[in-house]
Design a protein around this nucleic acid. Structure first.
Length: 424
RNA sequence: GUGGGUGUAGCUCAGUUGGCAGAGCACCGGAUUGUGGCUCCGGAUGUCGAGGGUUCAAGCCCCUUCACUCACCCCA
């Protein structure tokens, strides 16, 4: 029996990978215009980093981390998300001393031990961005604008930007108490999960899909109505800037977060096209996080996009076929050898050239050239070879002409207008 | 962790009350010497997910197991 891959960890095959490359390229271009620099951090970190940042009682830390001891007995974990490692690096290298604002983006695999389903995998990929050092609502609006622009340029429609504010250490405890009290008298109608956690994580009930919880929380107090003065004006300004930039959004005061570090502005880019996975990007402000992992008191805001989910939404519509410029069809050993050398000369010039390595008939070489989508086919037989020429067939026009082999390079470069950029 | 669905050719899937393993697509070859697409003709391909059981006989029935998938939970 052959060895299969690990459950929930997928291969990205030719034909799919083009979509990923498109998404990554689009993100790099958009993020660059907003002044973000890439940062690359390791895939494993000390387990403690995630416990302290994400929260000891979150599902991620409690039951979803790939944690293990290395050979010296330290507990390390495959990263379940990207923000904590990036903040760790920022603190470790004191990047905040180089500039008062740091705009960083990252991309790479994350790991969570969950049951896989559509749009949810054990190894998944996130592309995220973080702004650290400034808590002005303009920064929130910039991040949201960048996210919006990414979706526009990536051509992903059918998504909605939802925003909320979760308050800060000033106002959240009071709201939380209020909500606990509200839930307490309605415990009977809550689902088992919400009953169990109404004290530890009451916000979760607002987001619960069970009909009982939906009904029970219909009249629940809204976070937005209980923000402190600072959070309320902050949220108001963010909304004002979004309106000013004509960025569409919806306020969703029942949006909650799975990670403990979020404060004030939170947001999600949601879709209805991915089964039960409705978030394709999510993020928010995390003003206490850097200090919590042992750094200075720096505010921050960021988001992460799920590449698998983006790729599912995008499908393969973005993929344009990469056609070979030329296919060299040689007949007989001598012609085949000569074709091989010619092919290499073309490739060295940056032209995509292909040939047959299996000594097939001309007919089947033509078929293959057609299948690959070659623009031109060079037909080289014994006769042509002896006089130093060949037939160059234009596959789209279905016409062909004689060319001298020593002219082939210049003819092809002229036709395809393609010279390797790094040569000149 | 819990529940449902599905495992048959490279892919998508048929397969009758248990009786020789099938189709379409894809692939390969051919249709007057060396010319693609369209058409036509021909060809190869299987551990029927795995293991066990019942039976003269199992893709089909029974048991076990694994994988994939969707949903719950949770999240990107």
């Amino acid at each position: 029996m052959s060895i299969a891959g690990i459950k929930g960890m997928n291969d990205i095959l030719p034909g799919e990978v083009e979509t990923w490359q498109f998404l990554e390229k689009t993100a790099r271009e958009v993020f660059r215009t907003y002044g973000f620099s890439e940062i690359r951090v390791p895939v494993v970190e000390k387990t403690e980093l995630f416990c302290r940042s994400i929260g000891e009682t979150t599902d991620i830390v409690e039951k979803e981390m790939y944690s293990f001891e290395d050979r010296s007995g330290n507990s390390i974990s495959l990263r379940p998300e990207g923000t904590a490692p990036v903040m760790r690096a920022l603190v470790q290298h004191k990047l905040y001393n180089l500039d008062s604002i740091n705009k960083l983006y990252y991309s790479g695999p994350m790991f969570r031990y969950e049951r896989p389903q559509k749009g949810r995998y054990r190894q998944f990929h996130q592309l995220g961005a973080e702004v650290v050092g400034v808590d002005d609502p303009k920064v929130d609006a910039q991040v949201l604008a960048m996210l919006d622009q990414f979706f526009q340029e990536a051509g992903i429609a059918d998504v909605e930007l939802q925003i909320n504010s979760l308050g800060c250490p000033e106002c959240r405890p009071a709201y939380r108490d209020l909500l606990v009290a509200y839930l307490e008298v309605r415990l009977e109608s809550l689902c088992d999960d919400c009953k169990r956690r109404y004290r530890t994580n009451p916000l979760r009930a607002l987001d619960c899909k069970s009909t009982g919880c939906k009904a029970a929380t219909a009249e629940a107090p809204s976070v937005l109505a209980h923000l402190c003065c600072g959070c309320d004006t902050h949220f108001g300004k963010v909304r004002g800037y979004l309106d000013g930039m004509n960025i569409p959004y919806a306020v969703n005061d029942r949006m909650v977060r799975g990670l403990d570090y979020y404060t004030k502005t939170t947001f999600e880019m949601v879709t209805t096209r991915l089964g039960s996975q409705n978030a394709v990007a999510a993020g928010g402000r995390y003003d206490g996080l850097v200090k919590q992992i042992g750094g200075p008191a720096l505010s921050g805001i960021g988001f992460a996009m799920g590449l698998e989910r983006l790729a599912l939404l995008k499908g393969d519509e973005a993929v344009v076929r990469d056609r070979p410029e030329i296919f060299l069809a040689g007949l007989g050993e001598a012609a085949s050898d000569r074709s091989f050398l010619l092919m290499q000369e073309l490739q060295r010039q940056g032209l995509r050239a292909e040939m047959d390595f299996e000594g097939r008939s001309l007919k089947s070489q033509m078929r293959r050239a057609d299948k690959l989508g070659a623009r031109y086919v060079l037909i080289l037989g014994e006769d042509e070879l002896s006089r130093g020429g060949a037939e160059l067939r234009d596959m789209d026009a279905a016409t062909q002409e004689d060319v001298q082999l020593d002219q082939l390079l210049s003819v092809m470069i002229e036709r395809c207008g393609l010279v390797r950029r790094d040569k000149a």
